[in-house]
């Protein structure tokens, strides 16, 4: 009883089994990987402005403006189960009303094979640093970097980088319209 259909069925089942076993093998082989790395983050010229946030509540909100210095080498993070590395820089601070505020200021996608040695000097933030209110003045902000590992198959890990930095915004609003964040990629 070896009809054409039964041969086709066996072949198909075997292909699927081999693929499944290989995928599980790749997943298990990188399961205990920690993906830690140290980065250096620097802040330059942080100022606070008081402007209308037309993207949100259309009220006067605090807008933080700053320049970033980033220095890291993430080539070590790429093993055979890392398809894409998604880097994101979080500004975290506390306000009287909110116990936690997180704003992503910058992110970057690094695909396998692309250069993961990143050295950026005095770049503008990629996203606006709008506060949800008027609480950025004299506020202590912590900048930290993290990455999301997108595997070929497996877990979607979020790993915080070693090395974060803190700074305090000025207690005065800056009124000059000279410096505004520009999109930079």
């Amino acid at each position: 009883m070896h009809s054409f259909l039964s041969r086709l069925n066996t072949l198909f089942a075997f292909t699927i089994s081999v693929l499944a076993v290989l995928t599980i093998g790749v997943f298990i082989s990188t399961y205990f990987e920690k993906y830690h790395e140290t980065v250096s983050i620097g802040v330059n010229k942080p100022i606070v402005k008081h402007m209308t946030d037309y993207s949100a509540n259309r009220k006067k909100n605090d807008l933080g403006v700053l320049q970033l210095n980033l220095d890291m080498n993430l080539n070590q993070l790429f093993d055979w189960n890392v398809k894409v590395l998604f880097l994101y820089l979080i500004a975290e601070y506390v306000t009287p009303t909110n116990s936690l505020n997180q704003v992503v200021l910058w992110d970057k996608i690094i695909r396998r094979g692309e250069n993961a040695r990143i050295y950026l000097h005095d770049i503008a933030t990629k996203y606006y640093f709008w506060d949800d209110g008027e609480n950025l003045r004299s506020n202590n902000v912590t900048l930290s970097l993290a990455w999301n590992i997108i595997p070929n198959a497996g877990r979607l890990l979020h790993v915080p980088a070693n090395g974060s930095t803190s700074f305090i915004f000025s207690d005065q609003y800056t009124t000059s319209r000279a410096a505004s964040p520009k999109s930079s990629s």
């Binding site: 909110n98 997180q102 996203y127």
Partner: peptide
């Protein structure tokens, strides 16, 4: 997620 604001 790009921004999070969590109240007390």
């Amino acid at each position: 997620v790009l921004k999070v604001h969590e109240r007390d």
